[in-house]
Structures are given as C-alpha cells and as structure tokens.
Computed example of a mutant assay.
Amino acid sequence: MAIAYRHQIDDDTEFALWRIEEGADELYKQLQLDEHEKAFTKQLSKSKRYLHWLGTRVLLRKMLGTEDYIDCKVDAHGKPYLVSLPYHISLSHSFDYAAVMISKSSPVGIDIEQVKEKVERIANKFMSPDELAYINPKHTIDQLYVCWCAKEAIYKCYGQKEVSFLDNISLQPFAYEGHGVVDAKLQKGAIDNAYEVNYIKYEDYMIGYVKA
C-alpha cells in the first residue's frame, strides 16, 4: 500500500497516513533495523500493536525518502526522535492507519483516532465543564474526538510526562466542521504555552495535529 493521504502544512512540515493492508512480514522487509530494534520486535506478538509499530516506521521511511538506516529512538518521556536527521517527528496509529508528522523547524504532535461512540462515556475525564458546555449536540461524538485528538497532539508536541488533559490543557470554544482549527493552552506551573491545533476528519477517523 502506498501513502493514503499526505498534507503539506508549510515549507518544512507535513504529515501523512498509511493504510496498513500489508502483513507484518511484508512491512518488516521494508525496514532496516538494528539489533536492539530486532530484539524489540520479537517481544511483540503478531498483533495490531506490532503492525502499528512497523507501519509508522515504514511511513517515516517513505516520507523521508531514504533507503538508509533511520536511527529512531524514544526519550525518557516516551517522545520519539531521530538521532542523526534534522527532523522533529510525531507518530500515531489507530486500527487500520499509521500517521507520521515531521518538521525541520519545530516540535510537532499528531493523533489519529477511529471515531466511536464510547468517547462520550469518558468525556468528563478529559474535558472540563466549560469545554463540555460548548459541545454541539448535533456533532457530539465528532466534536469530542476533535477535543481528544487536539489534547493528545499538544501532549505529544510538548513532549513531557505528567500533563493532565483535564487540568493542564484547555480548549477554546469552536464550531465543529469537517476540518478546522482549535485554539488551546497548556498551563502547568510556570508553563503557559498557546497552540493552534488543526483537525480533519478522514473517512471514519479524526486527526489532530499541531506545530509548536
């Protein structure tokens, strides 16, 4: 499968989606892995998690346009980074899709989620009463997924642990459409960061993405 969707955000920032239709062996053959990565993949069963891990790495390789080994590590906070290439990256996956965002200039964050009604049951765990008040009943599920994806994208972009979606990330009211922008803030201690998070609905998936 080729790249299913690719969006150029600015001159040095883009994201893309890969629909995972291959088996694990086929994806594995497209990668170059070091001994640590090979050992890590052996710990994963032939499950969706394994396919997701492989899918994000194949997509990253395609976006960077290289056949060389890509040294992709994860820092102490769980944020992926490239050791020897000048890109900030963010990875996400959900069911049949892998998503990757890259930028040469700034930290980025992306989240993709398949839209399901279960989000309504947990909304009060990541949304404040003020945020819940502006949810449009006509678009409850989709709008809640925008909020989740926006907060997840900000969390990944910020790249530090111990951030509460409910207490530290706040979203300004917005009218839901199939795509748009949400203004947000991450506030924790002395940190007060403003973000403009973009979102788009693709098939039955919601995507939120942000650049610092």
Results as ranks from 00 to 15, higher is better:
residue 204 D to K: 12
residue 212 A to D: 10
residue 96 D to N: 12
residue 36 H to G: 09
residue 206 M to R: 05
residue 60 L to I: 08
residue 155 Y to D: 08
residue 84 S to T: 12
residue 78 G to D: 04
residue 113 E to F: 06
residue 26 E to N: 13
residue 173 P to R: 04
residue 67 E to M: 09
residue 57 R to W: 11
residue 82 L to R: 05
residue 154 I to N: 01
residue 46 K to Q: 14
residue 116 K to T: 15
residue 111 D to M: 02
residue 41 T to W: 12
residue 94 S to G: 02
residue 37 E to G: 09
residue 17 L to K: 11
residue 12 D to I: 05
residue 91 L to T: 03
residue 152 E to Y: 07
residue 194 A to L: 07
residue 59 L to A: 07
residue 42 K to G: 02
residue 37 E to Y: 10
residue 37 E to A: 14
residue 60 L to H: 08
residue 117 E to T: 15
residue 69 Y to Q: 12
residue 207 I to Y: 08
residue 185 K to A: 09
residue 146 V to P: 01
residue 144 L to Y: 03
residue 167 D to E: 14
residue 126 F to H: 08
residue 5 Y to M: 11
residue 3 I to G: 04
residue 65 G to D: 03
residue 76 A to E: 15
residue 154 I to G: 01
residue 59 L to K: 08
residue 167 D to H: 14
residue 109 G to W: 01
residue 108 V to P: 02
residue 178 G to N: 15
residue 93 H to N: 03
residue 120 E to Y: 11
residue 134 Y to D: 04
residue 89 I to T: 01
residue 119 V to E: 00
residue 127 M to H: 00
residue 168 N to W: 02
residue 170 S to V: 09
residue 63 M to W: 10
residue 201 K to L: 10
residue 155 Y to P: 06
residue 119 V to W: 00
residue 123 A to G: 09
residue 1 M to P: 11
residue 152 E to N: 09
residue 48 K to E: 07
residue 101 M to H: 09
residue 188 K to W: 05
residue 191 I to P: 00
residue 72 C to W: 04
residue 19 R to N: 08
residue 83 V to K: 13
residue 20 I to A: 02
residue 100 V to W: 01
residue 114 Q to V: 09
residue 131 E to G: 00
residue 133 A to Q: 00
residue 103 S to F: 10
residue 84 S to M: 05
residue 190 A to P: 07
residue 13 T to I: 08
residue 34 D to C: 10
residue 104 K to F: 03
residue 140 T to S: 03
residue 123 A to R: 05
residue 110 I to P: 03
residue 89 I to H: 01
residue 92 S to V: 14
residue 29 K to W: 02
residue 175 A to V: 10
residue 2 A to Q: 15
residue 85 L to F: 06
residue 195 Y to M: 03
residue 77 H to Q: 14
residue 13 T to R: 11
residue 108 V to F: 04
residue 116 K to G: 13
residue 69 Y to I: 12
residue 64 L to M: 12
residue 69 Y to C: 08
residue 38 K to P: 11
residue 59 L to E: 09
residue 206 M to F: 06
residue 183 D to V: 12
residue 6 R to E: 14
residue 170 S to Q: 15
residue 161 K to P: 03
residue 131 E to C: 00
residue 183 D to G: 13
residue 15 F to E: 04
residue 69 Y to K: 13
residue 68 D to W: 04
residue 3 I to M: 06
residue 93 H to R: 02
residue 212 A to V: 07
residue 114 Q to K: 15
residue 30 Q to A: 10
residue 209 Y to S: 06
residue 104 K to A: 11
residue 129 P to I: 04
residue 80 P to N: 08
residue 41 T to D: 13
residue 34 D to V: 10
residue 147 C to Y: 01
residue 198 N to W: 13
residue 68 D to Q: 12
residue 67 E to L: 13
residue 84 S to K: 14
residue 162 E to H: 15
residue 109 G to H: 03
residue 125 K to M: 09
residue 27 L to C: 10
residue 117 E to M: 12
residue 94 S to N: 01
residue 48 K to I: 08
residue 4 A to L: 03
residue 88 H to E: 07
residue 49 R to K: 15
residue 124 N to T: 15
residue 133 A to I: 00
residue 22 E to M: 14
residue 92 S to I: 14
residue 206 M to G: 02
residue 97 Y to S: 01
residue 68 D to M: 05
residue 5 Y to L: 13
residue 199 Y to G: 07
residue 112 I to L: 05
residue 158 Y to K: 00
residue 180 G to Y: 04
residue 135 I to M: 00
residue 53 W to I: 13
residue 43 Q to L: 15
residue 127 M to K: 00
